[in-house]
């Protein structure tokens, strides 16, 4: 019923508008078209000026009401560079925006048709052309310079002391792998993937023995310690988006990618800073990956080295979980049968 009313009102409003528009056409014919044209010209020139002024006020108002909703200070070293770069660009483009928009609408108002004025025949001026070729070129050189400088810093090699975490996207979840004590990831082959071996780790590779697999829980990182993420995807392209760190990298099936950064604030720091006790660093999927794309969410906990070590000590590697069950009798896993068969059948072969 509500829809019906809305449609009816729209139609009615439209009919009225149309009738007025039609009538104004007839009136202009009766009153003399030239005169009518001049009047509408004036009205539109005035609206143009009004649009400019209200528009600029609107831009200011929009900024005032929304700036509090965008992110606070970046929580990573790279993020700070990116924010600096963003500030420089906003300042520069902001100046150009205001100058050009003001000129555009001001000219539209100022030089509206009038009997008193004759248009000025002004087909070209090479000096002016050179000026507005060179000035933008210089401004852009500055932006490109800053941009590429930071770009190489961000995309360059990770520091030697960086920790590594592997993150794998699939419809519609994130899985993590930590390299364990040997600080090396074991080899994988996607055809080895099974329910118990979701990443397709090759068990013959000794480096895999201590690799820790985790999913459905936050990724743990250490504050002020560089981290290099090795990014994979199983099925379609995903993207690891870390907005608080201002980082982003696609996860491409068959082509591992990497990115590194140094988290500079712990989750607790951020909770204090934002005044939000439930603050979490979120991992968002930024590359459309199917119907669950919207909900492909992960979390990161940034903590101190001590906290991290405590957490890590409790973790058991996937290999141990599958093949070296410490207390099989006391804690039967939900799918014990499958696990035992896989142990007995696959361990000798691998």
């Amino acid at each position: 019923m509500q829809t019906f009313f809305i449609v009816a009102i729209l139609l009615l409003g439209f009919l009225i508008t149309f009738q007025i528009a039609k009538a104004s056409e007839y009136v202009s014919v009766i009153r003399g078209e030239e005169k009518a044209k001049r009047q509408t010209n004036k009205v539109n020139a005035f609206i143009m000026l009004a649009f400019l002024i209200l528009g600029l006020i609107g831009v200011y108002y929009c900024n005032e009401s929304l700036k509090g909703k965008i992110l606070g200070e970046a929580a990573s070293n790279h993020g700070k560079h990116i924010d600096t770069m963003l500030d420089i660009t906003i300042a520069l483009t902001g100046v150009v925006f205001i100058i050009t928009q003001v000129l555009l609408f001001w000219f539209g108002y100022k030089y509206q048709e009038s009997d008193k004025r004759k248009a000025f025949y002004y087909p070209h001026n090479n000096k002016l052309e050179v000026i507005w070729t060179v000035i933008p070129a210089i401004a852009l050189t500055v932006l490109v310079g800053f941009g590429i400088f930071y770009w190489f810093k961000i995309t360059g090699d990770a520091p030697a002391n960086a920790m590594e975490v592997e993150i794998t996207g699939s419809q519609f979840k994130w899985e993590f792998r930590y390299p364990g004590k040997d600080k090396t990831f074991g080899k994988k082959y996607y055809k080895k993937t099974t329910g118990d071996n979701p990443l397709g780790q090759i068990w013959e590779d000794g480096a895999n023995r201590d690799d820790i697999y985790a999913t459905g829980e936050p990724m743990h990182l250490v504050v002020n310690k560089p981290v290099r993420l090795v990014i994979n995807a199983k099925d379609v392209i995903h993207d690891v988006g870390l907005i608080h760190f201002r980082m982003k990298m696609d996860a491409v099936p068959g082509t591992p990618t990497t990115m590194w950064f140094t988290p500079t604030k712990t989750t607790k720091d951020m909770a204090k800073e934002t005044g939000n006790p439930d603050f979490v660093f979120e991992i968002s999927c930024d590359q459309m990956c199917g119907k669950g794309h919207t909900n492909m969410r992960g979390e990161i906990i940034v903590e101190t080295q001590e906290e991290y070590d405590v957490w890590m000590a409790k973790k058991e590697s996937q290999y141990d979980k599958l093949f070296n069950k410490k207390q099989p009798a006391t804690t039967p896993a939900p799918d014990t049968t499958k696990q035992t068969t896989s142990v007995t059948m696959s361990k000798p072969n691998h």
Binding site: M48, F107, Y111, E113, R117, Y122
Partner: peptide
């Protein structure tokens, strides 16, 4: 953009 702006400048614009 600057050329469009200059085209409008000192014109006799019919809106």
């Amino acid at each position: 953009v600057f050329n469009w702006l200059t085209t409008l400048w000192r014109g006799n614009i019919r809106l």
